[in-house]
Amino acid sequence: MNFKQIMGLFVLTTSTQVVATGSSLVASGGITSFEGTAGGGITPWAVIAGYGSAEEINGTAALQQLDLGEYQLRTFGAAIGIYDRVELSVQRQNLKVESGVVGNVFNLLTAGAIQTAPGTDIEQDIVGLKVRLFGDAIFAQGTWMPQVSAGVQYKKNRDFATSLPLSDGAIPLPDTGVPKLLGATKDSGTDIYLSASKLWLGGAMGNNLLLNLTARMTKANTFGLLGFESANDDGYNLEWEGSLAVLPSSSTAIGIEWRTQSDRLGGLAEEKTVMDVFIAYFPDKHWSLTAAYVDLGRLPFDEKASGLYLSATVNL
């Protein structure tokens, strides 16, 4: 977390003390996923960002950090919820890749001629739109009908073609960033998803129970951080994502999540199903804090890419 982000969060947190949030019940807006969309930590939910009711416009600002050792993913962004119907979001992602990984990639590609290289950053921007189609996740009790939303995430990888310089400044592969190097053929893509969310009040021995299921059509490699499409696969794949949470108190949610990924690039960029266990704390309607253990499955030269995930959302 850099200084700018910390200051940003500080300003947001202190300024919200005088600004009212929306009217909806605490925790009903979920948290903010690392793609900027209201949801869980790694997947969208059908809820609209913020605590706005059908008459209100509210929003969220959030930041997330996932520490994977050789990789660090830092993300931040903001979302606006309009009349509990439409959600607009913007998100910046920064995947910091340690020099050991970049050196290993060059080592492999040059058959040992180049063995070390400086670390690099892969950045991606995401613009999201979500629309609640029907349903009321919380108040439609006594029925199985969930709240259902449809959304799109336009993703643009900013470092698809950013050259990787060696320590002496030489550029062995001009205009080739990590995503391109690993076989991705596009620098942008649009994910389309459908999310269904349902909360059972008192559903788990009196505690509230939340279930979310998301189906996503995507061309992204590792969420787009490793680019989009590949030479022999440029079509959409269907991925499944889910969250299951229990709220043992009005301010706490504990749960698990998963998210499938198609292994389009293979080789170094092989993808596996992402999983996490999380605990989210909602002290009041102004902010929430989430800690999770995320298992990303695999990243290049990191067979066990897992680590601590922290996420903070401020409600405006």
């Binding site: 919380i138 108040f139 009040l201 559903g203 021995m205 009196g206 009005s250």
Partner: peptide, 26 residues
């Protein structure tokens, strides 16, 4: 919700009562 808490109902009892009342919203 606040009244139920102040009167001393448990969080679990509160949720189950809300579950019965929630469908009235529409």
């Amino acid at each position: 919700q606040q009244a139920m808490r102040l009167i001393g109902l448990t969080y679990q009892q509160e949720n189950r009562i809300l579950a019965a009342l929630a469908p009235l919203k529409k």
